[in-house]
Design a protein around this nucleic acid. Sequence first.
DNA 1: CTATACTATGTAAGCGCTTTCAGAAAACGC
DNA 2: GCGTTTTCTGAAAGCGCTTACATAGTATAG
Lengths: 336, 336
Amino acid sequence: MPPTRTTIADVANRSGVSIATVSRVLNGTAPVDTDTAKRVRSAITALNYVPHAAARTLASHRTDTIGLLLPEISGAFFQPMLRGVEAGVSEAGFDLLIHTTQARPENAPRRPLGEHNTDGLLVFTESLDAKELTRLYSIGFPVVLLHQAPPNSLKIPVVTIENQSGAQAIVEHLIKTHHCRRIVFLQGPEGHEDSTWREKGYHLALDAYGISFDPSLILRGNFDRDIARASVEHLLADRVKFDAVFTGDDESAIGVLLALRQAGRRVPEEIAIVGFDDSLFANTLLPPLTTVRAPTEQVGKEAVRQLVRIIQGEKVESRLVLSTELTIRQSCGCQG
Amino acid sequence: MPPTRTTIADVANRSGVSIATVSRVLNGTAPVDTDTAKRVRSAITALNYVPHAAARTLASHRTDTIGLLLPEISGAFFQPMLRGVEAGVSEAGFDLLIHTTQARPENAPRRPLGEHNTDGLLVFTESLDAKELTRLYSIGFPVVLLHQAPPNSLKIPVVTIENQSGAQAIVEHLIKTHHCRRIVFLQGPEGHEDSTWREKGYHLALDAYGISFDPSLILRGNFDRDIARASVEHLLADRVKFDAVFTGDDESAIGVLLALRQAGRRVPEEIAIVGFDDSLFANTLLPPLTTVRAPTEQVGKEAVRQLVRIIQGEKVESRLVLSTELTIRQSCGCQG
DNA sequence: CTATACTATGTAAGCGCTTTCAGAAAACGC
DNA sequence: GCGTTTTCTGAAAGCGCTTACATAGTATAG
């Protein structure tokens, strides 16, 4: 820190007004004489003055900051999410404070994000426990949930996507267009809501076409390339027959693709593969991946919008579901 | 905000001490009687007390926050970078404030990140102009530059990677092992330092093997999939002969791959492709991409470490260059 | 047993702002 | 013109903390 930082008092002195007036010019909270305002503004420029965020927060009870809580910052899925959130946040003139929860020690000394340093929180699946969520709800702190229903049926707004119908559509495509009958499904991480809904969509599709469900075709993929690969390798080793894999997400599709390529199975001729999310790399795989387009970036952006509205005291709908869209490429057997 | 937030005074009352003592327990800044400390701590727990960040900042002149300034938050390149930064930041017990500079209006009302809201700044290539950088330097504000030399030979610490030798190594691999002679190079964005160094490495490799430089083999790829693709399509249309492409980064390699595939040129049999960065998707391309491994995540982590050291008043070396490593896969013509 | 040094705690002065409250000056109504 | 509203401005009270500074009690030394 420099010996003496430029404060609002310096600006006030230089322009011959009180600090209250400077504050008014800064925030436009009360009418100020045009000339006075001009003098103040030029003093601000001349002194290179920037208001001290903490002082402002302390006095005004606003942080102008939105907190984002998610399991990890990396991963193909979080990228567009983050981009959307960033866009929304900067559009609304807020700052963004990010915390990841993965592998964070239990004995974390203080709550990283909350009413003490943000105006509101965006909480992604599983990154905050029900207890804390309940506490925040009870004190009326603005929170928006992403891809996750509120616990204990609290009325916390949610932004998510149409998982079930999207999944159903893509599985039905496999059945109807490509005559697949033995379709493997790779589950996401334990308790992952998106995955649960996608699995329901999978079942609905089978039911719709009268295909009986075979539990041995349900594997764990954990939305992880390597785990998905291992699961499929097991399946192949066990000589289980299947003609398609719905990988639950796109990341897993890479693992499946690698496993099948290794085993000499041709995709999509022998086995079709379809994913979910339409991650950035989906169209660079070979063959390009047929998947369900999830508007992840919009989810982020919309969630911020909802949150900002809540912060500003407006009411918002409690559940916003963005629609997904079947995106046909070639890994299902269609011709590009 | 709840009507009355829990403050340090509440904790003090409940445990029968002054707020100064509570503060001491909280920060460990002075010896406190064991029993007193215990009483205070249990009051903190009982009241669910969390210190107010802004008040703390205002009083202590520390924000415990590190600012990250980069052009965009998305993009395969920034992902590992971000991950490294996040890891470093949370390891050091700081918060992370992120700002992107791309497409931000010129009339941004206030300087987004600086001495008023962070303890130090991580600045990625081109995301802060020389004037502001100079100002920050002049007031002694902690800054670490990423992949970018300081302007006006200011002594601002830098963390970057060995671009030149990495590039030289991979081009020499093409020449020596695969007997390529007409190697295309795709430049990154105008003035991008990494790209400039990589281009130098390219030239050194040619020189080392006495291959004369052909300017028509230098194209602009802008580290962008689509631009790279268009450039190569032009080259093909112009019937320029070439037997390899060094794409400058990995993202461009996708575009090149698509262009060549479209044109029916086989990779790597007819034309070898090599990249730089070893992005996550590099080994999922077909053929898997031979590239130069850039330790981007470490760059992020190390940069935070340097920055924290500076914030704590220690001295650091002014330039940290992490080494790169040739990563051979199959797109150069080698057998996996 | 007095001088000296800690140890443990409280008091109070800010940190740099926002925001009431109040008052002066200017504009307006009739 | 005189009362009334409106516009503009300043004084001052905090916001919730940290941190000198001061003080009382308790060891330690000689």
